[in-house]
Amino acid sequence: MTGANIIFYLLAVITLVSAVLAVTTRMIFRAAIYLLFCLIGIAGIYFWLQYEFIAAVQIVVYVGGIVVLIIFSIFLTQQAGDLLAKPKLGRQVFSALAAFCGMALVMLQLSQHTFAMTANKAVAPTVANIGNQMVGVEEGGYSLPFEVVSILLLAALIGCIVIALKSKPETK
């Protein structure tokens, strides 16, 4: 049991426990904070795998962006101190059953499957390599999806403003 293994199992436990708490707690603000810890745990797993760039993106976009957005929307839409309504027992039982059965099915399939590995030389996921391939136009380059995503982000930006815009009063 080396230090790296211990860190991996620690990160896995943090991620899964805080994910479970995020979907079961009845205080919505705490759910957001547990989600934050879950996302940080996943970023830690990316660091553990030595995908530093993805880990940084995860922290910047998810932890710094989406969770803050969620917390703000909780502030705007929720009365402080309110507990969430308790879900019906039947729904809880059947959801747990469905999730457990699905998980058992997937784990069964996984345990019986062996994956084929590539034999080629590894490419280091450095920022320089990622950047070159991201805007590359030759085969294997991702410049077209890059442009499409930038258009999508612009559309989402405009769409958010249009949806959340306060409609003007009809009377003059």
């Binding site: 899964l16 994910a19 479970v20 995020a22 979907v23 079961t24 969430l84 879900p87 729904r91 809880q92 059947f94 959801s95 747990a96 469905a98 999730a99 457990f100 699905g102 998980m103 997937v106």
Partner: peptide, 10 residues
Amino acid sequence: FIGVFGFFTR
């Protein structure tokens, strides 16, 4: 599946 469970119950 934790996410699926949350999506069903919340």
